[in-house]
Design a protein around this nucleic acid. Structure first.
Lengths: 122, 122
DNA sequence: AAAAATGATCTACCTTGATGGATCATGGTA
DNA sequence: TACCATGATCCATCAAGGTAGATCATTTTT
């Protein structure tokens, strides 16, 4: 959690899982993304508040694409992703939401919707 | 374009559009997201390589959620978003993809913001 | 006209992501 | 046993994001 109370560590996990799912090394990913291996290691282990360009570079190298989804649609989108994953029968399928949520785990009910949120509208 | 050849400006546009769609001022968004108005202005106009936490803070404040979508699914996901938008009949519906791609074109001039990426490694 | 609100700018100042390059323990393998 | 690839660490340095607070030219509203 940083200043804004936002988790950042799980993105490292997501990236790590995506990388391992593709069975490539950190150095390979480094080569492909242009981001130094040392930094990737840091990203995957420690929590690093990535810059957008870095995130995009990594995502791109991992065949992922960050999309801003309207809150109301996230369940549907995640469901879509989840479904496709179960079809593809991926070894370990992890939820790749940037906000790092639950844990899809194949046999999951419907939508474990997002974390709570302090309404601070003014 | 930054060091990695990645566009970053359009996120500012996306945020701006999302904000205007919600009809709130930069200051209101600033209050809600915790990010100073001066910075939001900069983000929306100049291109700022946002950090993840900032992006999340803004997205959250705008009822958006960044999700890492497998490349093969992005069209489906965007389609989903697009559809829902046309249903909701939003004034100006903008593509909210972080990579700013295709061009939803529901009832719009169809400006293609595409910026294909170069495939390097194999 | 006066007041209020909006978005863009500006000036420090601090923090930290990112780079480049090296190292190191570990595990697997020729 | 040597060799090599892997991931984690470390260091120095730089660039840029982010903060805080104020200001300013315009609009919008009263």
């Amino acid at each position: 959690m940083n200043k804004l109370g936002i988790e950042v560590e799980h993105i490292g996990s997501a990236i790590k899982e995506a990388r391992e799912a593709k069975k490539i090394s950190q150095r390979a990913l480094a080569r492909k993304s242009g981001i130094p291996q040392s930094h990737i290691s840091k990203i995957e282990t420690k929590g690093v508040d990535l810059k957008l360009t870095s995130l995009l570079a990594l995502a791109r190298a991992l065949d992922l694409e960050p999309v801003l989804v309207p809150r109301k649609l996230t369940p549907a989108v995640k469901s879509l992703i989840r479904t496709s994953k179960s079809v593809t029968v991926t070894p370990q399928s992890a939820e790749l939401s940037l906000t790092g949520h639950p844990a899809t785990v194949a046999a999951r009910p419907a939508y474990t919707l997002d974390e709570e949120e302090g309404d601070d509208d003014g």
